[in-house]
Write a protein that binds this DNA or RNA. Structure first.
Lengths: 199, 199
DNA sequence: GCTAGACTAACACAGCTGTGCTAAAAAGGA
DNA sequence: TCCTTTTTAGCACAGCTGTGTTAGTCTAGC
């Protein structure tokens, strides 16, 4: 009988308003009221969906990680193995406006999570995404190995970690100095790195 | 005639209190009053040295970058070229408690600076450090090249950026998952990477 | 049209925020 | 001892903060 709105959708909508605030003014400005204003609702409305602020932060952070996961899952492997590998990497790098925004927000969350060291719920989200990305890197390196393309003498685990570090480093650079670290340049560097692993 | 205290020292002392607050509770908790309490003074005392909060943030961020620069400048090149290269890298990676703290703070500042996009004074500091680190990487790669140790066909600029990205990525990993990304492991990965560049 | 239930807005409250201002304490040369 | 300058602590103010509470508005099936 009551008006029915999709709870999940509304929560995502609010979380995205939080993203915009965080991206524009930093996490320090992410108060319930500013977020409500950004979303175009009253503060009470926001608090109806999120009883407290920590819940909102946690949900918004979780949403980032879900978006990343969805994007990865959406990729279909076809064509050459190295080509597919690069396509995956391309998809998790912040090379367009949407993903750069996502990464900025992620960076802010990560810094905040780092403070609530250990116990905080935000820290758990950081770990999740971090582990997912490493798992992706592991899959990619393993795919190259299984296809027999990997150069002799390369250790799969080591190359996984190197790729993962390179990925995060390039992401950071693409985010903080986009005019220098252009998408083209990033793709070039990634391709170069992958090629350096091939026999 | 008046009591004389070294202005610069006091400012650094306060900035370090800010670091501790930021590291413990995140940048959101970095108010004038909490910082004063952390430093063991009244809020008025802090405001004597820093008229406004933005000045404090800027100074504290600048202090991080100066510390990093000092550390780099303190290294003397001796021994083999690859050995020296690794020593430099070792010095800028957050592999002990002090430097991990520094990096945590830096991460928080970077995220905040990313918000004040473009115009902010914090953003300028980010750029400075970022450029200094790239310059360091450039110097190291060039040193290897000049010593004739670099593998044929490697592009100096490209390897500079790859090393820089790897450096920042590993720093991040060492900071957010120190139990997995141990100092030993990081050094191993770095050595492996440098060796992969050698003829 | 009515009404149960989902949703919204608004206010209250105590506490914290940055910043301006003022009074006093400290300190060392005269 | 006094006096000038630096340094400190404290208060005041308006505005924002998270959260509780409460009264109200809307909607959809009857």
């Amino acid at each position: 009988m009551p008006k029915i709105v999709d709870h999940a959708t509304r929560r995502e909508e609010i979380a995205e308003a939080l993203w915009r605030v965080v991206r524009r003014d930093g996490i320090r400005a992410a108060s319930v009221r500013t977020i409500a204003a950004e979303a175009g609702w009253s503060a009470g409305a926001v608090r109806y969906y999120f009883p407290d602020q920590d819940g909102l932060l946690g949900f918004a952070m979780d949403l980032v990680s879900r978006r990343v996961t969805e994007r990865i899952d959406a990729i279909v492997a076809k064509g050459s193995v190295p080509g597919t590998v690069l396509r995956y990497l391309d998809e998790v790098l912040p090379l367009d406006e949407e993903r750069r925004a996502e990464f900025d927000v992620w960076l802010a969350f990560m810094a905040q999570a780092q403070a609530e060291s250990g116990a905080g719920t935000l820290h758990a989200h950081t770990d999740t995404v971090h582990n997912e990305l490493r798992a992706l890197c592991a899959t990619l390196i393993r795919a190259l190995a299984d296809a027999g393309l990997l150069k002799d003498g390369l250790d799969v685990r080591r190359e996984t970690e190197r790729l993962h570090a390179l990925l995060d480093g390039l992401s950071l650079h693409a985010a903080i100095q986009p005019e220098r670290t252009t998408p083209t340049r990033v793709r070039q560097l990634m391709r170069h790195h992958i090629e350096s692993l091939l026999a």
